[in-house]
Amino acid sequence: MYTLCTEGRTINSESLDLSEKVTMRSETLMKKDKLDNAIVLEDGLVYIGEMQNDERHGYGILIYPNGSILEGNWINGKANGICKLQYSQDEYYQGNILNNRFQGYGEYVNNNSSIYKGQWENNEKHGYGEEYFKNGSIYCGNFIRGMREGEGVYLSSNGSKYEGQFKCNMMEGDGIMFWGDGSTYKGQFQNNDINGYGVYTYPDGSYYEGYFINGKRNGIGSLIRYDGYEVSGEWEEDKFYKN
């Protein structure tokens, strides 16, 4: 969860210190019409921008004591519209804000972990979005209250691909998994693993249809080899147990 209240956050050691940021932003803003000089507020915030009725109103920049910067449009003292909240050189949010909350489309970038592009509601990822991880993995699909939930596609950095249902950030429900060696599985998932009934197809064309527990053949199932030979019955820990 990402909030506009940035108290307690630390900024990157390579980023500018607060005084440099104030000077830099002031020089930029003084070139614009109808912008006031920097105002230092009682809580340590620094605001540079337009005012109306003693409230932030119009275009302006708010600088937090820890160095984070919120830049964009203000209405009656609150950020509204397209804004940018810069936590550090490596981390920022840019997109729509409604009454100081991330709302609508926005992009959250953390160069040390991931990039998210998609919908937000009340400061959380909510709706359709795409998340690109530093290790090369990609998720495209639905989010609910900050978690991957509903239909989605996950492309792993190891070359595998999952299409199906998610719950609480995990593969959960019906889905299809494709592996780089040509293997596929279509069926039920639970806790990020193959659990329940499904069909697993091997690279040589053989396939197993039946029940799985934690990715292994367990319970009633049938293995049909590529040459037509069939083994049906009960399986335990990936091994045929009895007819």
Rank of each mutant, 00 (worst) to 15 (best):
Y2E: 13
Y2C: 06
T3L: 05
T6W: 04
R9Y: 12
I11H: 01
I11G: 03
L16Y: 09
S19R: 07
E20Q: 14
T23R: 13
T28V: 13
M30D: 11
K31H: 14
K34D: 14
L35M: 11
L35Q: 11
D36L: 15
N37C: 09
V40R: 08
E42L: 04
G44I: 00
G44D: 02
E50C: 09
N53C: 15
R56C: 11
L62S: 02
I63W: 00
Y64H: 11
Y64P: 00
G67E: 02
S68N: 10
N73I: 11
W74H: 12
W74Q: 02
N76L: 15
K84H: 01
Q86N: 05
Q89S: 06
Y92M: 06
N96T: 12
N96Q: 14
I97Y: 03
R101D: 08
R101P: 05
Q103D: 15
Q103R: 02
Y108E: 05
Y108M: 08
N110R: 05
N111P: 07
S114F: 09
I115P: 00
Y116A: 03
K117S: 12
G118L: 08
Q119R: 06
W120M: 02
E121I: 04
G127E: 13
G127N: 14
Y132G: 02
Y132I: 14
F133K: 04
G141P: 12
F143G: 07
R145T: 07
R148W: 10
E151G: 11
G152Q: 06
L155N: 06
S156I: 01
S156Q: 04
N158K: 13
K161E: 08
Y162H: 04
Q165H: 08
N169K: 11
N169I: 04
N169Q: 12
M170K: 15
M171L: 14
M171C: 13
G173T: 10
D174T: 08
I176P: 10
M177I: 10
G182V: 07
Y185T: 12
Y185F: 15
Q188C: 07
N191Y: 12
N191F: 08
D193W: 03
I194T: 03
I194L: 10
N195W: 08
N195G: 03
G196P: 14
Y197R: 10
T201V: 09
P203K: 05
D204E: 13
D204T: 07
Y207L: 04
Y208S: 00
G215E: 04
R217G: 03
G221I: 01
E230S: 09
W235K: 02
W235P: 04
K239F: 13
K239Q: 10
K239T: 13
F240G: 00
